[in-house]
Simulated scan of single mutants.
Amino acid sequence: MQSPKHIMAFIARHWAFLFLLMLIASFSIAEPNFFSSRNFNNILIAATTTLLLATGETYVIITGGIDLSIGFVMGFVAVTSATVMQRLYARGEGAPEFLCILAGCVVGLIVGVIPGFINGLLIAKFRVPPFIATLGMYGIANGIALKICDGYPVSFLPNLTGQIGNGFIAYYAGKHGFSFFQKPILTERADILALKGLLPVSVLVTIILLVICGFILAKTRFGQHTYAIGGSEDAAIRAGINVPRHIIKIYVLSSFLASCGGILLVLRFTMGTHTQFSSTYELFAIAAVVIGGASLMGGNGTVWGSTVGVLVLATLESGFVIVGIQVFYRYIAVGCILILAVLIDQFFPDMVHHE
């Protein structure tokens, strides 16, 4: 039989996951339509960009830093990649749609890592505090993005863009069975209404990136060095770790994942959008990382924990919408959950971070 201390330790360590299960159960009781494959698909699709931002932020926070620029880097990449797709498609004279989309994605990823490299360079080589360095990049990325799109969405992209971003790995059409990567051709209204998509493409891409990043953090030397730097930078230097180079890589990774999020937005909405609300993405990503058990002091955190944190926020938002609770209560709830996470970390640090 488990002692009360062991039970408390389990709750303190896994409270976010238990809270997620409680949210799912509560919203399912309040509104039966919440517990459906269609709604869970919608939750996962909506969470993809925040999941990618939170994964990069996890690495940064573990080292004791913070990246405030990722929301606007994501917007910058979204309008840049969409602009490339738009112009190639408009001038291509029969250029394959897939090549236009691929070129936009590649250009977006290339320019997207530049802010991360600059952030890392400023922090690692010039000893600029992470808050200041990334806040400066926050403004720079925001300004460049607005200059590129003039404040308007970049539209008129190849039709294939939305088909990829909103597609599913498999479709189930009842008596017609399964089809993969392409919607089956249906003529009867009942069959069309019964069509179900299984595993969105955007979710699959996100899962692959999460698994890779989670494995690197948990099982490789790169991950060990990340934790070591967050635990004690001086000790990491004495252990022979090239701390400046590693920190630059961390911020490049953060920007790369933000760039992936921007490209997924373009593919989902068939346009490149950038607004001042992009800044809320990094705030929710940071909140998710803290809810998932990472410490802002560095040295602790996991990709799995951050994933749970994002799912808590995404489930909360979806549940409020379905149940009919006004959206501004979401911000109040997120604030309360974030404070609760910090209090748990403050009062039960040994239980939360004990391996």
Rank of each mutant, 00 (worst) to 15 (best):
A170Q: 04
V323K: 15
E317R: 03
C105E: 03
G56D: 09
G305M: 12
V203C: 12
Y59S: 06
T280A: 14
T275K: 01
A236S: 14
R91M: 10
G167W: 07
C213Y: 01
V310G: 01
G293Y: 00
A54F: 07
C336M: 01
G319Y: 04
I110D: 09
R13N: 09
L146G: 08
R238L: 08
Q182D: 10
V77E: 07
G94L: 04
F222M: 07
G292C: 08
S278A: 14
A54S: 15
T280I: 10
G214F: 00
C260W: 01
I144Y: 03
L253V: 09
L338G: 07
Q224N: 12
V203S: 10
G324N: 07
T63L: 08
A124Y: 01
S254C: 15
S306I: 00
I148Y: 02
A258R: 13
G223P: 05
V334N: 06
Y329M: 13
Y227L: 12
N39G: 10
R189C: 00
G299W: 10
I248A: 12
A133Q: 01
A235K: 07
F35N: 15
S81F: 07
L68Y: 00
Y251C: 04
S36L: 14
I148G: 05
I286L: 14
A333I: 12
Y138D: 08
N242P: 03
A12H: 00
S279C: 06
G151R: 05
F19Y: 11
S259R: 13
A170R: 08
S279T: 11
V154E: 03
I207L: 15
A12Y: 02
K249N: 05
V352S: 08
F35R: 12
V201G: 02
P200Y: 04
L296G: 00
A235W: 01
I24S: 03
L217V: 00
L157V: 04
H274Y: 02
E317V: 11
P32G: 11
V113N: 05
G139S: 12
A9L: 03
I144W: 00
L102C: 03
M271R: 14
V60S: 09
G139K: 06
L51F: 13
S318K: 15
E317C: 02
V312N: 09
G136I: 02
